[in-house]
Amino acid sequence: MITRKYFILSLLHIGIFQTTNEPASKLNKMLDWTHTYHAEMEKKPGCPIGNLAIEMSEHDETFRVRIHHFFERWIGAVEATLDEMIKHGQLDSTIDTKKSAQAMIAMIEGGILLMKTQQSIHFLSNIIDVIRKQFNLS
């Protein structure tokens, strides 16, 4: 089951970023999917990959490497999308897209963690709102 969730999440994120949509649309789709995925669950179990990262990374090197790979691919896709936004004049050209992509994913995962501990989608909703404003996605 864990491997299947990992595979499904990977496909969804890859699929979103491999479209020919405008870069802002890609990021909005990612944020919409993330919010919907968690909002539709009655209980808030958190992110399957984030949960694995917390539980397994220090105990099993194989899991840690797979989880690392998942996050690196996600961050890389967001970074490339932010680069596209700069090329289209939608973001300031001085932005560090790698750091910004890392921060965006950290904000999402942190929002999911707070959502899980508080059992309230509002934490994730607020984080997504901040990301949309910060990156001109509204």
Rank of each mutant, 00 (worst) to 15 (best):
M1S: 11
M1V: 11
I2E: 03
I2P: 00
I2T: 03
K5H: 10
Y6V: 12
F7D: 13
F7S: 14
F7C: 10
I8E: 14
I8M: 11
L9A: 12
L9W: 07
L12A: 09
G15I: 03
I16Q: 02
T19I: 10
T20Y: 08
N21T: 01
N21F: 07
N21G: 00
A24V: 04
S25H: 11
L27V: 11
N28S: 11
K29D: 15
K29H: 13
M30K: 05
D32N: 15
T34Y: 05
H35K: 14
H38E: 13
H38P: 04
E40C: 01
E40N: 06
E42R: 00
E42W: 00
E42F: 03
K43E: 14
K43R: 12
K44Q: 15
I49P: 01
G50V: 07
A53K: 15
A53I: 04
I54H: 08
I54Y: 10
I54K: 11
E55G: 08
M56K: 12
M56P: 00
E58L: 13
H59C: 09
E61V: 13
E61L: 12
T62A: 11
T62Y: 10
F63G: 00
R64E: 14
V65D: 12
V65C: 06
I67Q: 03
H68S: 13
H69I: 04
H69P: 00
F70R: 04
E72Q: 11
R73H: 13
W74P: 00
I75P: 02
I75F: 01
E79K: 15
L82P: 07
I86A: 09
I86W: 03
K87F: 03
G89N: 06
G89S: 05
D92K: 10
T94G: 02
I95T: 09
I95N: 04
D96R: 05
K98Y: 06
K98L: 07
K99L: 13
Q102E: 12
Q102R: 09
Q102W: 02
Q102Y: 05
A103L: 12
A103G: 03
A103W: 06
M104F: 02
M104D: 01
M104T: 09
A106T: 08
M107L: 04
I108G: 01
E109C: 04
E109Q: 12
G111R: 06
I112V: 15
L114N: 00
L114M: 15
L114D: 01
M115E: 05
T117Y: 00
S120I: 00
S120W: 00
H122M: 06
F123T: 07
F123I: 01
L124S: 04
S125Y: 09
S125N: 08
S125M: 03
N126G: 06
N126I: 01
D129Y: 09
V130W: 03
I131P: 00
I131G: 01
R132Q: 13
K133V: 11
Q134N: 07
Q134G: 01
F135S: 03
F135E: 01
N136D: 15
L137Y: 07
